[in-house]
Design a protein around this nucleic acid. Sequence first.
DNA 1: AAAAAAACATGATATTAATCATATAAAGGA
DNA 2: TCCTTTATATGATTAATATCATGTTTTTTT
Lengths: 150, 150
Amino acid sequence: MKFYTNKMLSNSSKYALKAVMYLALHTEENNKMMVKDISERINVPKAYIAKLLQELAKRKIISSAKGPKGGFYSSPSNKNRTIMEVIEVIDGKKKMESCVLGLEDCNEQHPCPIHSLIGPLKSKMIDLLDSKTINDLAQDLALNKVFLPI
Amino acid sequence: MKFYTNKMLSNSSKYALKAVMYLALHTEENNKMMVKDISERINVPKAYIAKLLQELAKRKIISSAKGPKGGFYSSPSNKNRTIMEVIEVIDGKKKMESCVLGLEDCNEQHPCPIHSLIGPLKSKMIDLLDSKTINDLAQDLALNKVFLPI
DNA sequence: AAAAAAACATGATATTAATCATATAAAGGA
DNA sequence: TCCTTTATATGATTAATATCATGTTTTTTT
Ligand code: FES
Ligand code: FES
């Protein structure tokens, strides 16, 4: 059977997360960064990341300024947004929440076999993404506990 | 931003899982079931599920017989295959294993921020799917602990 | 005020996954 | 043996996602 590249997150939200992390670590209001540079640093095609950055800015996940000396950056309030919010802006709401088998009437009270198996783990995953802020992850990065691969 | 229907499993493997479960519960060597009927019972388009069933049979996740009185069924040895094997036949190997951010050099020793967050949960998920057999789930279904939504 | 530098908006193209269709081969029954 | 019935193999079409491209607006600098 043919090879699939299935995944939990869309490419778009992966890229968005990388960009958001990068901006949280390396920018602030008076130290902005242009699309071109962001693109190079995080290793995502310029035209592609540009579109995502614009959407993220519109939804206040990051900040932006037009014109010369303009660019994107991460403000303190931006950094309080959660990881899940980043994902939702790009992938849309029900992404993570949808059931594994995607059956309408599958839930805690009426679980399909897979649901009862991995449902609890998935809930935990969602809770984590819901509670962790961009700032939380940036802290981990700053402490070199983790790395931002490019 | 436009609406995505992102997911952990491809539609194909969801359908395959439903079919496999159904066959495990309702068929045996001398009680086969034809594509047409399977399609109706599990509520998946005939031409679509047919292709998947053929692949599953080729890979011995289920069994099949041609000609009149033929059809698909689940043998005892079929039922010993794991859930992960079903997924792998359809979605290909690295499906589940691939990192969330999909970075080449992200691993336990060199984790990206997301990895350290949900990596452990994902590992558990994979372990579960690796250890649970079709038969295990069929048991749960037989005991009415869970349901097979259609 | 004009020019340049940036993000913003919008749309086009390409690739991948999902779905459908049809001709071929094997098995059983008349 | 020949016809019918079923799975099998293979390919075509459609829809979704990922990627790229380009004109418009806003802001700064001269
Ligand atoms: S369809 Fe929800 S995991 Fe069961
Ligand atoms: S890229 Fe693996 S989760 Fe980090």
